[in-house]
Design a protein around this nucleic acid. Structure first.
Lengths: 191, 191
DNA sequence: ATACGACAGAACGCAACCGTTTCGTCGCCT
DNA sequence: AGGCGACGAAACGGTTGCGTTCTGTCGTAT
């Protein structure tokens, strides 16, 4: 077996162990066992479990979200929600993401890795989407992008990862409708 | 030390260990050590780590949220958000909740416990809040309560627990405004 | 005064991992 | 042909946690 294959086997094993046992319970021995690999091969590559996980995760997290362009804000949001829901449906992701998030609360290195991944995949996409809507006149130029992000992804993540309720296409329709309305209506100010 | 005090000490220790190390890494020995208690005292009460955690958590999770009644939907949402933000600011909660949530993806018993706690504290409150808004004529009678819940708590949780961004009172104002607009505007149906 | 029950603490044998080292094998390059 | 580097496997001593057991103390009720 060549170096590259060994590395790939280790990466896959890390994901699988992470999903099955979580970061806290994951052991290097188990990763080596599952990858069919000696611990030597792992320690030759990384110094610690933390380094290994951070490296493997950040390598894999580079996937980019497509920028939706349906011609309407609501349609764009709907596409974004669909992509997000699809990503969270993946069994590995749906177990690993909450776990890493929890670990991030106590480990700054992991927190930074996740933050960076999130920033790269989503902030750009949303900025473009909002920009398009502003150009079309659907939103005012001073729309709060940060708030918009939270109102689009927040409800979806809440539903999938917190309440564990089913996410039907119909629900996504209603959510997109609501989020679009929220952005448009976010500009009355005071009480 | 009496039985009751020992139990209280154990409960406090469980929370502290849970916050510091997470469920996966938490050990009964550490709980006993921190509580200043023999392992005997723990095993006399529970059979396993899982039972102990579930019992302790579900005992403590019974806290009820106050039902806001400010006279306007937006004001009610704002109060709800404030209570939520305050709860998540508590350092124990902010570490324990994501951790248990991650563990719930792997353990049906924990998932059920959390689900029940969530249902009890929030669904009732929100139903009342939506009902009041309907009575005032702010919302149509067929308002989707489920969606409303997601659109109020989702963005807040996303911001606090996922993106780890600061939550200012001003932000809560804007979020309340957006959520209220979302609920009101969630009733255009089609394309 | 005595007996009982809950307690803390220490130790048990067992298992899992840790990070490191050693061994012998195999494939590639020159 | 020979050397080199990566490999899997196994073992090292040390740590941690498990669930259980034993000992001795202390407070309370009888």
């Amino acid at each position: 077996m060549l170096q590259r294959d060994v590395t790939l086997a280790i990466q896959a094993a890390v994901f699988a162990e992470l999903a099955e046992h979580g970061y806290g319970r994951m052991s290097i021995e188990a990763v080596a066992r599952r990858a069919g690999v000696g611990k030597t091969a792992i320690y030759r590559r990384w110094n610690s479990k933390l380094q290994m996980v951070i490296d493997v995760v950040s390598t894999a997290a580079v996937k980019v979200m497509p920028v939706p362009d349906t011609g309407s804000l609501r349609g764009d949001i709907r596409e974004l929600l669909d992509a997000g829901a699809q990503a969270m449906r993946h069994p590995l992701a749906s177990q690993i993401v909450p776990d890493l998030l929890a670990e991030a609360a106590r480990n700054p290195d992991i927190a930074e890795t996740l933050e960076k991944a999130l920033r790269e995949t989503q902030q750009g996409v949303s900025a473009v989407m909002i920009g398009n809507a502003v150009e079309r006149g659907e939103l005012p130029a001073d729309t709060d992008v940060e708030l918009a992000l939270d109102m689009v992804f927040g409800p979806l993540y809440w539903r999938v990862a917190v309440t564990r309720s089913p996410v039907s296409p119909d629900y996504l329709d209603r959510l997109a409708q609501g989020a679009a309305a929220a952005l448009v209506g976010a500009h009355g100010v005071a009480p």
